[in-house]
């Protein structure tokens, strides 16, 4: 039998096994909190939000795998991308299933809600798309679709935008978390837009971090300006200072700079290790 943590000859693949095992951690923790009655008066709601959060997190992790593999010179990382993507799908399916359960399994009501509430409609579309990608993620589908497979699976870039919009709209008034994730998404897409030769460059990473952070501040400004009575200029001004604590744009910048440092460290470490061979 073929299992994800062994290769075709039956040898254990430690990286894949680890990533697969880790994918169960958030679900296990959520289930434990739920079972131990630690989620308060509306536990189902908390678990629905928790699984939704992890869907979007795993989606972002799946998009971060290519840049990480390239920047840290770690091509083997690409082998776990399918597991990560399927994990996002699994959390998404759990997210929807729990919502159906919360509505006492009234499928007719659920269907009418999905049709009538815009944020549910797009969330459902994003999940359907993710389902198609999951279904076609097998080696057989890759072979059969050939070059079209890559084209099909690039639709994840669009699906992620839809999922982020769902994340924004379901927020009450504070959109800090979706703004932060959107900033990371901008970073991931900008990196993809770089010329191939620059995608391994450490030097482009600091400006990339700054641009992604500015984009996050811009997204935040536009959202509050369009969707709320909050004065967007005050929100923007809050990102120009640290007086109100770290704003989402600051976190995006910090993550971007951390990536730059990691890549630089790897480059230095990689060089020192390769030096004896050169000598």
């Amino acid at each position: 039998m073929i299992v994800p943590w062994r290769d075709r000859r039956g040898r254990l693949l430690p990286l894949k096994a680890t990533v697969l095992a880790m994918s169960f951690i958030p679900a296990t923790v959520l289930a434990y909190w739920w079972a131990a009655d630690m989620l308060g008066a509306r536990a189902v709601n908390e678990v629905i939000h928790g699984t939704g959060d992890w869907t979007i997190r795993y989606l972002m992790i799946s998009l971060a795998i290519a840049p990480t593999a390239r920047l840290l010179d770690w091509p083997r990382l690409l082998t776990v991308r399918r597991i990560v993507g399927l994990t996002a799908l699994a959390y998404g399916v759990a997210h929807l299933s729990l919502y159906v359960g919360q509505q006492n399994f009234h499928l007719g009501f659920v269907a009418s809600e999905i049709a009538r509430r815009f944020y549910l409609t797009i969330g459902f579309i994003a999940l359907l798309g993710l389902g198609v990608l999951g279904w076609t993620s097998t080696d057989a589908w890759m072979r059969d679709l050939g070059r079209r497979w890559k084209l099909l699976h690039r639709s994840i870039y669009l699906l992620a935008v839809i999922a982020l919009l769902h994340y924004f709209i379901q927020s009450k008034s504070n959109v800090s978390e979706p703004v932060f994730v959107s900033g990371l998404y901008v970073w991931l897409m900008l990196w993809r837009a770089l010329p191939m030769a620059w995608q391994r460059s450490v030097l482009v990473l600091p400006p990339l971090a700054v641009i992604a952070a500015l984009a996050a501040a811009g997204i935040e400004f536009v959202w509050y300006g369009l969707a709320s009575g909050i004065n967007p200029w005050r929100v923007l001004a809050a990102s120009e200072t640290l007086r109100f604590g770290l704003r989402p744009a600051h976190y995006v910048a910090l993550v971007g700079l951390a990536v730059a440092l990691l890549a630089a460290a790897r480059r230095v470490g990689g060089l020192s290790r390769s030096r004896p061979r050169m000598a």
Partner: peptide, 18 residues
């Protein structure tokens, strides 16, 4: 309805009832 969700039903705190 609220612009984003239905107000047709409500969940009673601490129960699984809608």
């Amino acid at each position: 309805a609220h612009p984003r969700w239905s107000q047709a039903r409500e969940r009673l705190l601490g129960s699984n009832e809608m």
